[in-house]
Write a protein that binds this DNA or RNA. Structure first.
Lengths: 181, 181
DNA sequence: ACTTTAATATGATCGCTATCATAATAGTGT
DNA sequence: ACACTATTATGATAGCGATCATATTAAAGT
């Protein structure tokens, strides 16, 4: 059955939103096209009217996720607290796209990697502007280092099995970062 | 056909070595049991004489990889240089197991996560002992923060598509880490 | 209103992979 | 030597997922 052009755009938006959420939660491979479409309230066959392939969907889902996360920021210390919180660790589906998918995207085709690259670049830029004025000369370096440490700590905390060690990784990394700020 | 007990142990060792290498290179999902066995010079059917399942193999492969990487260390600056080098970035198959698989292991069953947790714990401990004496009071914190930053930078550098940005992430993170050491 | 066209639904196909049953073969112990 | 047993090889099965052909339905345009 046919739907309004507006409805179709809305459908596409929902496909992207659900795909982005599911990919972050379960990884690219564990989520099938059928599951994404079902989550969006559609059947699997219609998928190829919206996207050329699952690879194509990955790229657009990354782009979509990176684009919608522009709000937050605020000041840097609060951002770090939230990013390195147990709540964020326990919610990959609603959390940072890069932390959830950056390692995986290494194994994906060009388009997905390009979308991820753009997202990483803009995230670094956002961090640069959020840095306090104390980092006059080396904002760029500070932004990259800080970002790498945040992301690494979150990935480690999510990989680890023992809650106490996981909490420790988050808390110690957080404290380490302000030790010399 | 039957083989010597020693030959069998050797076969198992080769299965683990090849699995570890292939998993790091292509990720768990992209590597099938048949491919691992073929790489080890055996046929796919014999696999279940060595391991209970592919999940079982993952756990043992992680353990195997973490155990064999005990050598290196040396002093910390050299280790950081090597870890954050383009050569290491471009060789996931021969490189750090955690950087290659930590993000993926979040989605795997207990056994694999437990093996990864042990590996991470021992890596942190090794970093603690490698730290210069200057970090008397807070070796633990410094080790965790440093490790998170290393790992995060390597994952980002591998995710990114543009060589210049990738190189930059490695080099800037490396410089950032000694800025206050 | 009526035709055309575009979006979704249904169902099938194809290939891949983990797993396992069975056969074949050669160590191991007596 | 011989029986026994353990390891590997061969081949089959079952299920899953991406993709696509076709049908259906309703929006768009006249």
């Amino acid at each position: 059955m046919r739907v309004t052009q507006e409805q179709m755009r809305e459908n596409r938006r929902r496909i992207l939103a659900e795909a982005s959420r599911l990919f972050r939660e379960k990884g690219f491979d564990a989520v099938g096209v059928a599951e994404v479409m079902k989550a969006a309230g559609l059947t699997h066959g219609g998928f190829y009217g919206h996207f050329a392939s699952k690879d194509d969907l990955m790229a657009h889902a990354i782009e979509h996720a990176a684009a919608e996360k522009v709000g937050s920021a605020g000041n840097l210390p609060d951002f770090l607290d939230a990013y390195l919180s147990p709540a964020h660790r326990d919610d990959p589906a609603g959390g940072c796209t890069m932390a959830a998918l950056a390692a995986d995207v290494r194994l994906r085709p060009e388009a997905a990697r390009a979308a991820m690259t753009a997202g990483i670049r803009s995230q670094i830029a956002r961090m640069e502007t959020a840095l306090p004025d104390a980092f006059a000369g080396n904002r760029h370096r500070e932004a990259i280092g800080t970002y790498a440490a945040m992301l690494g700590a979150l990935i480690l905390a999510r990989a680890v099995d023992e809650p106490s060690l996981s909490d420790e990784i988050l808390a110690e990394t957080r404290a380490w970062m302000t030790a010399d700020m």
